[in-house]
Amino acid sequence: MKALTIRQPWAGAIAHQAKRVENRSWKLPAKHEGARILIHAGAQRDRDAVVYGDHLDVYSAVVAVVTITGCHWSDDGTCCGPWGFENAYHWTLTDVIALPEPVPAKGALGFWTPQPDVLAAVEAQLADTATAI
């Protein structure tokens, strides 16, 4: 399973709010469409972002698991509600599962492969979450 690092507060908004689009300057590689990935909160905050709520202060940790269902270009950003940026690729996200406990990890640019211990910790939480449902 791959991971994608996203700065806060955007990673927290994906995990704990209704943000179901990731804005990127680059098109989603076709091989990742339909893929289940980890959402990693980066080590730094996006200083220009204005998002309020809980769970937005976690850094350098995996915070959620999502499925990327598609990608499209948007000139005006209105297609994806308040979360869509203009002049950006919108990666659509579904099946979001916020992890009960963030899993510490060092991120990277682009899609990256987490260490086995990080994957094991995420999978254990997903198994616990499934059992609780």
Rank of each mutant, 00 (worst) to 15 (best):
T113N: 13
P82W: 13
G53P: 03
W83V: 07
I37W: 04
Y89V: 07
D54R: 06
A124L: 11
T131V: 14
W10S: 01
R20A: 12
A124P: 06
R20N: 14
S74P: 09
C71D: 14
R45Y: 05
R7S: 09
V51Q: 03
A124R: 12
Q44G: 14
G107K: 00
R36H: 09
I6G: 02
Y89G: 07
K27R: 15
Y59F: 08
M1Q: 13
W91K: 02
A121G: 06
P29V: 10
A18R: 15
A88D: 09
I6V: 10
W26D: 06
N87P: 04
H72T: 12
W26M: 09
V21R: 04
A43S: 13
P29T: 08
V21L: 10
V63C: 02
D128E: 15
W91T: 03
T131M: 14
L4N: 03
E86N: 14
F85Y: 15
I14M: 06
V21Q: 06
V63D: 00
P114D: 07
F85V: 10
A15T: 03
Y89H: 12
F111M: 09
D75Y: 12
D54I: 06
Y89W: 14
I68R: 05
W112N: 02
G84A: 08
A64V: 00
A41T: 01
L119Q: 11
T92S: 10
L99T: 00
A130S: 13
I39Y: 02
G107S: 05
A13E: 05
E22T: 10
L99M: 04
V66L: 04
T131K: 15
K31F: 12
E33M: 08
I97L: 07
S25V: 10
D54A: 09
A98N: 01
G34F: 00
R45F: 04
Y59H: 07
E101D: 12
L99H: 00
A35D: 10
E86L: 14
V50D: 11
L109T: 10
S74Q: 11
Y89C: 07
